[in-house]
């Protein structure tokens, strides 16, 4: 049958569900070992954060799409959680190999890291569901916005996350999850560009404070003169 935008989106959603069948919505045994190896065990905080962000996500999803769709929001959040745990485990395996350490206490007790990683996983899920509506401009025949309201940078607002922190996880996320489709990788790349070109330079961005601090500490190396 001919490939239509709706069929393409349905195939992508089916593929995502298949990819995540083997992943649970709880930390895997391997991930639990990484948590236990930490100086401060982050397990409880991780589970509590997932619970509270799940409630927040479903509530905001319902507000954006309609109160009858809260259940749909929960389903998407569950897929996001599976991807979040799966990517976290893969990232830690690479870090263990690269750094030859098993104690990731600082990283795994960093709330911003977890929130950014979960936001990225949810962005992948939302972009997979929103694929068909994005391509036709995001409007149904009646001119009512569909799904686009839920696409990036919506998730940053829901989780009160700065674009700068979200940006940090994108590349490692793509490296850690080789099953991501070409379209999703392109979508994440577009998010990166949007952050770099616009969002990271908004007045409330933490980037200005970081730049100021770097300047006060003195330049580490001489910058090259700008090219024409």
């Amino acid at each position: 049958p001919p490939q239509t935008p709706v069929r393409a989106a349905m195939n992508s959603i089916a593929q995502l569900r298949v990819d995540l069948t083997s992943s649970g919505d709880q930390p895997s045994a391997n991930l639990a070992v990484y948590f236990k190896n930490c100086t401060v065990d982050p397990t409880e905080e991780v589970l509590q954060r997932v619970e509270s962000l799940g409630q927040l996500f479903s509530q905001r999803f319902g507000e954006a799409v309609g109160p009858r769709c809260v259940g749909l929001g929960k389903q998407r959040f569950t897929l996001g959680i599976r991807l979040y745990y799966r990517v976290m485990e893969s990232m830690l395996k690479s870090e263990e190999k690269r750094l030859s350490v098993q104690n990731f206490s600082k990283l795994l007790n960093d709330s911003t890291f977890h929130t950014s990683l979960l936001a990225c996983a949810l962005e992948v899920v939302m972009a997979t569901y929103g694929g068909s509506t994005l391509k036709n401009g995001g409007y149904s025949n009646g001119g009512v916005p569909v799904e686009t309201d839920l696409c990036f940078p919506w998730i940053l607002d829901v989780f009160q996350l700065t674009a700068f922190d979200f940006y940090k996880v994108i590349e490692s996320f793509i490296k850690a999850e080789p099953s991501l489709s070409k379209d999703i990788v392109k979508h994440l790349e577009r998010c990166e560009h949007l952050i770099m070109e616009t969002i990271a330079w908004r007045a409330d961005s933490p980037l200005f404070e970081l730049l100021k601090r770097t300047r006060e500490e003195g330049p580490v190396e001489q910058a090259e003169p700008p090219a024409t």
Partner: peptide
């Protein structure tokens, strides 16, 4: 993922990006 422009160096990873060594 081969179309993605990877920018991180070999010695950089998520730990460095969140300031933990």
């Amino acid at each position: 993922n081969q179309d993605y422009h990877f920018g991180l160096e070999e010695h950089e990873g998520i730990s460095e990006l969140f300031d933990c060594d």
